[in-house]
Design a protein around this nucleic acid. Sequence first.
DNA 1: CGGTCAAGTCTTGAATACAAGATTGAATAC
DNA 2: GTATTCAATCTTGTATTCAAGACTTGACCG
Lengths: 214, 214
Amino acid sequence: MIVERLQEDISSMRLMPGSRISEPDIAARFGVSRQPVRDAFSRLESMGLLRIRPRKATEVKRFSRGEIEKSRFVRAAVEMEVLRRAARRCVAADGHELDACLALQRKALAKGDQLAFAQLDYDFHRAVCGIAGVPFAFDVIHAEKKKVDRLCMLALSREDRMPQLIDDHARIAEAVKAGREEEAVEAGTVHLSRLDATIEAIKVASAAYFEDED
Amino acid sequence: MIVERLQEDISSMRLMPGSRISEPDIAARFGVSRQPVRDAFSRLESMGLLRIRPRKATEVKRFSRGEIEKSRFVRAAVEMEVLRRAARRCVAADGHELDACLALQRKALAKGDQLAFAQLDYDFHRAVCGIAGVPFAFDVIHAEKKKVDRLCMLALSREDRMPQLIDDHARIAEAVKAGREEEAVEAGTVHLSRLDATIEAIKVASAAYFEDED
DNA sequence: CGGTCAAGTCTTGAATACAAGATTGAATAC
DNA sequence: GTATTCAATCTTGTATTCAAGACTTGACCG
């Protein structure tokens, strides 16, 4: 599928924000006609990854302060509500599931396996959504996350943060298991706010990838 | 624009859920070729209004329990966070804005102007988002709302509910103005839950417009 | 030397023609 | 009368061609 390939190229920053891509180019690269590419462009635009300027050009969307804030806000709101519900509903078996997630993540950290670590990060949040009784909430979190994921590819040395992220998860898990809503929300807020500093750092380091502020 | 026209047709239930539409038909109706229609279909699909079944048919999406729940959850989560922030930040001028909204809405109620009433409902929620310092949150609420808006077209006699909705808004406004977060959240929850009963009623009355449950 | 205008080229948008899969219907065999 | 099979038609997917707007580059004129 063309969409997936392009999405992967954009998410992995092989296609940099602001770089222009044209339908004929991509069509030739995939050995198809312009129509499928056009279709893919349209979908990627609605995913917020491309910006189609009619009759001018299509370019990989730059990061914008507004969109980052918006995505951040939605994720925060949803995740906090999820944590509240999870804390209210968590039973013993659920607690074990969270612990198992954490154990696996610690193992991935020990092996330095960043890919597995990232996957387990998803699994943890997905598990919390399941415990909260709102599995579909993870779809929302996931969709919002994808919009800013590529930004984090610019962050250097993710390894440093991995222990901290695990600590965050542990604290969240404890609060959820104990049924302490507000503590879980507090821990979740801290966890999310880790990203803010990273983004600010990236913004000064790679201003070219950000949209001009008005 | 073709998308808007079709969207309006779907939202207003002129095109019923489950009814099939084909690209050539719509193209002929608008006097254009299949490509613009195809483009429009693609966009409407990503808006969650159409379901394109490759090489089979394209149909107006039926309501699904899962999507309604998801949309409901996101709106609730976002709206509650907005109310919390609004309660914390509300100053005198903001309170006046809410009061003005309410006054206009009461006037619309008196005149029985349902269209204006609906618009003012949007304005109220938008105002709250503005007070909370997260205007973009309204985009999210709006987008989620559009997914289920057409469902409410099936509800009979909206007039009965208008006074109750105004009371809800008044209670929300009071709590926000007084800075009482939890009271605002509680009022917001009640406000949102009004829809649930309506949807349940519609579900039994118009089961044909809902997807089969698995 | 500089500015302006025009032609050429590059972009996406739209229209048309062709292809492939799915469904439906009728016709035929049993 | 019923079941099965084949063909016609309807669906969306893809390719190709034409069209229209915008940018670039060159030449020509002041």
